[in-house]
Nucleic acid binder design. Structure first.
Length: 135
DNA sequence: AGTGTGACCCGGT
DNA sequence: CACCGGGCCACAC
């Protein structure tokens, strides 16, 4: 699995997140079969072009705790993500520390690995399974 | 070859 | 809920 293919796999899965739902970097990593690569999911979204042909709903990916990643002080990425989420009906609230949070119990989308379409990226495996396989 | 960093995750306090 | 420590993988210096 090359870096380019990893990115492609991430985009493929992110495109399947339904409207008004959010999931986490870590869960995307799980879905593509690489549970230890949560940090790289964020990188893949960072390198995403703003005008890809099938659009990638990057805004529906937040942290596992329901927090929108701040991307550092002085950046407006988190605020842009908030506005896009609210525009499609996702409720975002602000904690005292200024953190933007979404209620995962209401808007969370965490399908089990294997229950979604991986397309040509279904060969990725981070953990070997003894005695089983695609065949 | 070591150190620091990043759109992260989990458990403990 | 907030804070901290450890784990994780790849990249830049």
């Amino acid at each position: 699995m090359d870096s380019a293919e990893f990115h492609a796999a991430v985009y493929h899965v992110v495109r399947q997140i339904p409207p008004q739902r959010v999931t986490s970097y870590g869960h995307i990593a799980k879905l593509i079969g690489m549970p230890r690569y949560s940090r790289h999911v964020g990188q893949a979204l960072k390198f995403l072009s703003p005008n890809t042909n099938p659009p990638v709903p990057w805004h529906r990916v937040i942290s596992s705790s329901g927090t929108i990643s701040s991307r550092g002080p002085g950046t407006d990425g988190a605020e842009r993500q908030r506005q896009v989420l609210e525009a499609e009906g996702v409720e975002v609230r602000e904690s005292r520390g200024g953190e933007l949070k979404v209620d995962l119990g209401t808007f969370g989308w965490f399908p089990e690995p294997g229950s979604i379409d991986l397309g040509e990226y279904g060969e990725a495996r981070d953990e070997e399974e003894a005695g089983s396989g695609e065949g």
